[in-house]
Every structure is written in structure tokens, then in C-alpha cells.
Amino acid sequence: MDMTESGAAPYTDAARARLVMAYAACELADFARFAVPIGEHELNPDGTTRAPGTELAHAARVLALAERFFEAAVVFERVAGADWQTIGDVLQVSPETARVRYTRPEAAFRQLLSPDEARSSGAAGEVTSLRAHLVGQPLEFALDLDDWVLRHRDGDHDLGTAPVSGGLVRDEA
């Protein structure tokens, strides 16, 4: 297996952005599924909640994770070559509105691709160290996501043995 000195497989920037998007989708799916079961002691005999605000807080977290997934999708599209006109068209907003809204997440991602610059400027601010590790060690996360997909498949698709890592494009540079 072709590896760089740091142990990270040399993937394209777009592949790394798509991996960030895949991870965000996984995180969202795992968290959202906890809202489905209704706990045996969740409701009072009259149907009212035993813990007011609990489910609303959970829904707010799901929404925040969905927004993170959506943002990761925009960043992936940009890194993969989409212009602001395309992004705006899909989102049904002007290209300028799309650019204003998503320039910062795109810049934060691009700084992750250049760790020395991100450390010196501190501009990756809202990006977690987990996301930085994901971008820096994509193969590790891709293999974990392979396992996650295979554990959660519904059986009607032939996903192969590497449904995430198999689709990542390596950098030829």
C-alpha cells in the first residue's frame, strides 16, 4: 500500500472532503437513530414526558449534525470543482449568497490540508481536532466507515468489501 511518511494514504483533496462528508453523515445517522425508540419509562401514564426538553434537545443536536453534513457537502462540491453558480442553483439562492454562507467552512477545510499554515494562523478555529485527524489520516477513517456501512447495510445492495475506502481517489502527485 502506497503511504506517505506520516502513514496517510495520498488521497486527493476532493477525496478527503468527501470523506469528511461521509463521516458527518455517519455521525448524523447514528445520533438520529436514537430518537426512534420510545423508552419504557419515557412517558408518564397520562402521555406527558417525564423529562421536559430532553427530546427537543436531542432534535436540536440532530439538526446541528444535519447542518454540519450539509456544510460538508457544500465543501466537497467546491473542492471537487463546483463553482458558486452551481452551488447557488442547487440551493436556490444567488451565487453570492452561497459564497458568503460557505466561504468560511471551505477555507477552514482547505487550511486542514496545509497543517503548518493552519497552526500558524489559527484560522481553522471551528474545525475539531477529530476532523483534522480525519483529513490527515484518511485511510484510518475510511476503513472505520467501511465497517460502519457494512454493519448497517440493508441487504439489497452489493456494496463490496470497501464501500468507502474503495471509492477514494488517490493523488497522483
Score class of each variant (00 low, 15 high):
residue 1 M to Q: 10
residue 2 D to L: 13
residue 3 M to G: 06
residue 6 S to I: 08
residue 8 A to N: 00
residue 8 A to S: 13
residue 8 A to V: 05
residue 9 A to D: 06
residue 9 A to C: 09
residue 10 P to N: 09
residue 12 T to Q: 13
residue 12 T to G: 12
residue 12 T to W: 06
residue 13 D to C: 08
residue 15 A to E: 04
residue 15 A to T: 01
residue 17 A to M: 03
residue 17 A to V: 02
residue 20 V to Q: 01
residue 21 M to T: 04
residue 24 A to F: 05
residue 28 L to K: 03
residue 30 D to G: 02
residue 30 D to L: 03
residue 34 F to K: 06
residue 34 F to T: 13
residue 37 P to Q: 09
residue 37 P to K: 08
residue 38 I to W: 14
residue 38 I to F: 14
residue 38 I to P: 03
residue 39 G to S: 10
residue 42 E to L: 12
residue 42 E to P: 06
residue 44 N to P: 01
residue 47 G to T: 07
residue 48 T to K: 12
residue 50 R to S: 04
residue 51 A to I: 08
residue 54 T to G: 14
residue 54 T to A: 15
residue 55 E to W: 13
residue 56 L to I: 14
residue 57 A to I: 05
residue 58 H to F: 14
residue 61 R to L: 08
residue 64 A to D: 15
residue 64 A to V: 01
residue 69 F to V: 07
residue 69 F to N: 07
residue 70 F to T: 11
residue 71 E to H: 02
residue 74 V to E: 12
residue 74 V to L: 01
residue 74 V to G: 03
residue 76 F to Y: 12
residue 77 E to F: 12
residue 78 R to N: 06
residue 79 V to P: 13
residue 81 G to T: 14
residue 81 G to V: 13
residue 82 A to H: 07
residue 82 A to E: 01
residue 83 D to T: 00
residue 84 W to P: 04
residue 85 Q to M: 14
residue 87 I to N: 00
residue 88 G to V: 09
residue 89 D to T: 15
residue 90 V to L: 13
residue 92 Q to A: 15
residue 92 Q to G: 08
residue 93 V to L: 09
residue 94 S to M: 11
residue 94 S to K: 07
residue 95 P to C: 08
residue 96 E to A: 15
residue 96 E to K: 15
residue 97 T to A: 15
residue 98 A to P: 02
residue 99 R to A: 10
residue 99 R to L: 01
residue 99 R to P: 01
residue 100 V to A: 14
residue 100 V to I: 14
residue 101 R to Y: 10
residue 101 R to F: 11
residue 102 Y to A: 01
residue 103 T to M: 06
residue 104 R to E: 15
residue 104 R to F: 10
residue 105 P to K: 06
residue 106 E to V: 14
residue 106 E to M: 05
residue 108 A to C: 12
residue 108 A to Y: 11
residue 110 R to S: 04
residue 110 R to C: 02
residue 111 Q to M: 12
residue 113 L to F: 07
residue 113 L to R: 13
residue 113 L to M: 15
residue 114 S to Q: 15
residue 116 D to Y: 05
residue 117 E to K: 15
residue 121 S to E: 01
residue 122 G to I: 08
residue 125 G to K: 11
residue 125 G to C: 07
residue 126 E to A: 09
residue 130 L to I: 01
residue 131 R to K: 06
residue 135 V to T: 05
residue 136 G to K: 00
residue 136 G to S: 07
residue 136 G to N: 03
residue 139 L to Y: 14
residue 140 E to G: 00
residue 141 F to Y: 11
residue 141 F to E: 03
residue 141 F to G: 04
residue 143 L to A: 08
residue 148 W to C: 07
residue 148 W to K: 00
residue 150 L to S: 07
residue 150 L to F: 12
residue 150 L to E: 00
residue 150 L to R: 04
residue 151 R to Y: 00
residue 151 R to C: 02
residue 153 R to N: 11
residue 155 G to A: 12
residue 155 G to Q: 11
residue 156 D to Q: 10
residue 157 H to F: 08
residue 158 D to T: 14
residue 159 L to D: 03
residue 159 L to T: 05
residue 159 L to R: 00
residue 160 G to T: 02
residue 160 G to R: 13
residue 162 A to C: 09
residue 163 P to V: 04
residue 164 V to E: 03
residue 165 S to Y: 00
residue 167 G to E: 12
residue 167 G to L: 13
residue 168 L to G: 05
residue 168 L to V: 09
residue 168 L to F: 02
residue 169 V to W: 00
residue 169 V to C: 07
residue 169 V to Y: 00
residue 171 D to Y: 10
residue 172 E to G: 11
